[in-house]
Measured scan of single mutants.
Amino acid sequence: SPPKPKTIVLPPNWKTARDPEGKIYYYHVITRQTQWDPPTWESPGDDAS
């Protein structure tokens, strides 16, 4: 059997959903933003550039 996916701790107000093909995506319940990649926690002042 395939390994279980890691449990991802989502930031507040993010949910997972499935598209009609069964792929998992993520959406923000307030902004209605959707994305394929797991959302990352906002870390103020932490600039990755």
Rank of each mutant, 00 (worst) to 15 (best):
P3Q: 15
P2G: 13
E42C: 06
W36Y: 15
P11M: 05
E21K: 14
T40W: 07
T31V: 01
Y27T: 08
S43M: 10
W36V: 13
W41L: 13
S49F: 05
T7N: 14
E42N: 08
K23R: 12
Q33C: 07
P12F: 05
Q33E: 13
N13T: 09
H28E: 02
T16P: 05
S43A: 11
P2T: 15
A48T: 14
T40I: 02
G22I: 01
D47I: 05
E21M: 11
D37F: 02
P39F: 01
Q35W: 02
Q33G: 01
E42R: 08
A17C: 09
S43N: 05
P11T: 02
W36N: 14
V29Y: 07
S1G: 01
Q33I: 03
G45N: 13
K4V: 03
Y26E: 00
T31S: 09
V29G: 06
G45M: 10
I24Y: 05
V29M: 13
Y27I: 10
A48C: 13
I24S: 03
H28R: 00
K6R: 11
N13E: 03
T16R: 11
N13L: 11
P44L: 09
I8F: 11
E21F: 09
Y26P: 01
P39N: 05
S1T: 01
L10F: 09
Y27D: 04
H28Y: 03
I8C: 14
D47C: 08
Y25M: 03
S49R: 08
S49D: 02
P3S: 15
R32L: 06
I30E: 06
G45D: 11
D19N: 12
S1Y: 03
P11A: 05
I8R: 13
K15R: 14
D46G: 09
L10Q: 03
D37M: 08
I8A: 10
K15Y: 15
H28D: 07
P3I: 14
E42K: 10
K6F: 09
Y27N: 03
Q33M: 03
P2A: 14
G22W: 07
R32M: 09
T34N: 04
P3V: 15
S49C: 04
T7S: 14
P5C: 05
I8E: 10
R18Y: 10
Y27M: 05
E21V: 06
G22N: 03
Q35V: 08
R18S: 03
P3Y: 15
L10R: 02
Y25F: 07
P11D: 08
R18G: 01
G22E: 00
W41M: 14
E42Y: 03
R32C: 05
P12N: 06
S43K: 14
K4C: 03
P44E: 10
S1E: 03
Q35G: 02
E21S: 13
R32A: 06
Q33K: 05
T16K: 11
Y25K: 03
G45V: 08
P5L: 14
N13Q: 09
Y26G: 00
T16V: 15
R32D: 11
P12R: 12
W41Y: 15
A17L: 08
I8V: 15
V9L: 10
H28S: 01
L10N: 04
R18N: 13
D46R: 06
E21L: 04
K4D: 00
G22Q: 01
P3D: 15
E42L: 04
D47P: 08
A48K: 13
L10I: 11
I24L: 14
W36I: 14
E42W: 08
P12K: 13
D37H: 13
E42F: 14
I30A: 06
L10E: 00
P20F: 05
W36K: 12
D19C: 02
W14M: 02
P38H: 11
Y25N: 00
N13S: 05
I30H: 10
S43Q: 13
T40N: 13
K23Y: 06
G45A: 13
Y26M: 02
W14F: 00
S1D: 15
P11E: 04
Q35S: 11
P2Q: 12
T40G: 13
V9C: 13
Y27A: 03
K6Q: 13
P38I: 09
